[in-house]
Lab assay of single mutants.
Amino acid sequence: MATGGRRGAAAAPLLVAVAALLLGAAGHLYPGEVCPGMDIRNNLTRLHELENCSVIEGHLQILLMFKTRPEDFRDLSFPKLIMITDYLLLFRVYGLESLKDLFPNLTVIRGSRLFFNYALVIFEMVHLKELGLYNLMNITRGSVRIEKNNELCYLATIDWSRILDSVEDNYIVLNKDDNEECGDICPGTAKGKTNCPATVINGQFVERCWTHSHCQKVCPTICKSHGCTAEGLCCHSECLGNCSQPDDPTKCVACRNFYLDGRCVETCPPPYYHFQDWRCVNFSFCQDLHHKCKNSRRQGCHQYVIHNNKCIPECPSGYTMNSSNLLCTPCLGPCPKVCHLLEGEKTIDSVTSAQELRGCTVINGSLIINIRGGNNLAAELEANLGLIEEISGYLKIRRSYALVSLSFFRKLRLIRGETLEIGNYSFYALDNQNLRQLWDWSKHNLTITQGKLFFHYNPKLCLSEIHKMEEVSGTKGRQERNDIALKTNGDQASCENELLKFSYIRTSFDKI
C-alpha cells in the first residue's frame, strides 16, 4: 500500500482533458527560462521544448504516446526543470519506465491550478516501474492521483506527508504495488545497510526511497516546507523545498512566496507586481503582455491589467481597466465587458449561442446573426445582446428569417469595421425574408467608422429604411451602385405612401 494514499474509496472516473512563447529569463536562482504550460502528445517531438525550461508557468501534460519505446527515452533528460506552477499529468506514455532521468531536479509542483483537485496525476502508464522524482520536495496545493499503472512499484516507500501538507485526498490505487509483488529495495538494503531515512506512518517504520538508488530526502521537522541542505541544516524561511546553503534567500532552489532578481522575498516591493503567484514583474512586463494579447485571437491570451499590486489576466467583477495605466478602477454604474472572439468572429444561430455573449459591452471581433427560429426570440436576444455598444469588426445579418427588427441591439452605437466582410463591408444584410426595420432612427444613433453597407434580398425592408441608415451611420456616399439592390429590397412591402385627393359631386333626387 502506498504510504499516505487512500484505498478502496469510491472515486469519480478520471477524465483526461485534452506555445513556446518565453516569458522571460528567471535569473540567477533558476538555471534556465520560464516556459508556458505545455500539452505534449502523440510523439516526442515537442518534448524537446523543455530543454531550457527551469519553470513551467502553467501545467505540463505528457500523454497518448503509443509508439514510443524505452530506448526512445534513454537520452532524454531535462535537468534544468525545477518547478511547475500548476500540475504534472502523465497518461498512456508507452515505453517510459521512470522519471528519474527525465526530470531529475523537479523540486516543486505548486498546484496553482489543479487537474480535478490533483497536482500530480500518473494514470495508465503501462510501462512505468517507478516514479523516480527523487528531488520532489513540495506539492504546495492539491493532491496526488496514481492509478492503474500495472508495473509501478516504489510507492509504499514514499512518505507523501513530507511532500504535501495533507495526504487525506491522495488516491493511489490499482498499481502493481497493490499486489505486494514489488519487493522494493532501498539503497544499501541488499548489503544489509540502512542508507535512507525511515519514518513512521500508520504504525509502520519504513525506509523512504524513490528507487533502488535514490533515497527520499527527509528534512528535520523544524525546517517545515522550506527544505534543508545535504547536511540537514534548514533553508531560509522564504525558500521552498530545498537550498544549497542554509538561511540564505539567494540560495533557495525555489521560493515559498515570490522570486525577485535572484532572491526569494515575502512580497513584491514597489515598483514590482505579483505575477502568477510566484514571481515579481515590473510595469513594462505587464504592459507588454497586455499589448501582445490586445489584437491576438490565441486562446488563453489575456490583456493583463494591474489590481491590488498584482498583474492579473482581467479586472475583477465591479472594476474596469483604465487604459492609460492598466489599473483596475471601480465602475460607475454597470461595468464594461470586452469579449474577445477566439477566431475573430462568432455566429449567433440560437439563443444558446447568444447567451455566451451575455453582459458583453464591447465585441472584439465580428458578429454573424443567422437565426431561423426560436421561442420568445426578441426578448431572449435583447437579454443577451442588448448591452453590446461596440463591435470592432463587422455585423452580418444573414438568412435570419425569424427577425423582424434589429432593435434587440438596443445599445449598439459603434461598428468600427477594423475587419470587413469580403474585404469591403462593415454591415452586411443578406436574404432576411421578414426583416422590416433596422432601428427606430428617431431614437437610435449608430456610427460606422469604416467599410460599406450591403443589402440584398431583404424583400420587406424598404429602401427608405436603408437610406436612413446611410445618413445616420455616416456611410452615405461610400456605397457603390450594386451594394444596395434596388429590386430585391422592399419588393414585397408597401414602401411608397402617396396622399390621394378626392373630389365629389353631391346629387339628390331633384338636383344634379
Rank of each mutant, 00 (worst) to 15 (best):
W160G: 01
Y94G: 03
F275A: 02
G37D: 04
P270N: 14
S296A: 13
C335F: 04
G318S: 09
L88M: 09
K129L: 02
R297W: 07
F73K: 03
H28C: 12
I158P: 05
I158R: 03
H302V: 11
C252V: 00
Q299K: 15
L44D: 08
P334N: 05
G183E: 10
V121D: 01
A230T: 08
H212S: 11
G318R: 02
C255G: 01
C228K: 02
P270V: 07
I306L: 04
H236M: 04
L90K: 01
P249N: 13
E124N: 00
P104I: 01
G241Y: 01
Q287T: 13
M38H: 13
G142W: 00
F275D: 01
N308H: 15
W210V: 01
R208S: 05
T140G: 07
I56A: 00
D75V: 11
P36G: 14
Y171W: 03
E124W: 00
L102K: 01
Y259L: 06
N195M: 10
Q245P: 02
S166L: 05
D159T: 02
S284K: 02
L136P: 00
S225A: 11
G232D: 15
E180R: 15
D39P: 00
N150H: 08
L327M: 12
M125D: 01
A119R: 00
C239F: 00
H302L: 07
C243L: 02
N309D: 05
G183N: 05
E49T: 14
N282M: 14
L233Y: 05
G227N: 02
L102S: 00
P187D: 05
E180K: 15
C328T: 07
I109V: 08
F123L: 00
A156G: 08
Q303P: 11
G142R: 00
S161D: 13
C328E: 03
G188W: 11
E207N: 03
A230E: 14
V206I: 13
D184R: 14
H307D: 15
C209R: 02
L50H: 00
I146F: 08
R263T: 08
G188T: 09
L289E: 04
C228P: 02
L89I: 05
G32R: 12
C35S: 00
M137F: 08
R162Y: 14
L76Q: 08
C293A: 08
D39T: 02
C53W: 00
I109W: 00
P246Y: 07
Q276P: 05
R141M: 02
T157A: 07
Q276Y: 09
L152V: 01
V55S: 04
Q276F: 08
K129P: 00
L155D: 03
S225Y: 10
H48W: 00
P104H: 00
I158E: 03
P270G: 08
L60A: 02
C335Y: 02
D177N: 09
N308T: 08
Q245N: 13
R162N: 14
P79R: 06
P187C: 04
N257L: 03
P246L: 14
C196N: 06
R256I: 10
D288A: 13
M65Y: 03
N308R: 13
L63P: 01
T140K: 09
H274A: 14
N202Q: 12
F103D: 00
L102P: 00
A190M: 06
V34E: 02
C328W: 01
E33W: 13
P246I: 14
Q276A: 08
M125V: 00
I158A: 04
T189D: 07
P270A: 14
T85E: 02
T229E: 06
G262W: 05
L260A: 13
L164Y: 09
E124P: 00
N308A: 05
G132R: 00
G203I: 01
S143E: 06
A230I: 13
G333T: 04
I82S: 08
C243I: 01
L174P: 09
C286M: 15
L136C: 01
E71S: 14
F205T: 15
S213A: 09
C235M: 02
Q245K: 10
L136D: 00
R256S: 11
P104C: 01
T157G: 05
N179D: 05
P220T: 15
N170D: 08
R263P: 02
L81C: 01
S323I: 09
C315E: 03
Y304V: 11
P316F: 04
H212Y: 15
R256A: 10
Y171L: 05
N282Q: 05
H59S: 04
P316S: 04
W210Y: 04
Q303C: 14
L131N: 05
L174R: 15
C53I: 00
G203F: 05
V167L: 03
H48S: 12
S143K: 12
T329Y: 08
L289D: 05
N170T: 09
S166Y: 14
G300K: 15
I82N: 06
L44G: 07
F283N: 14
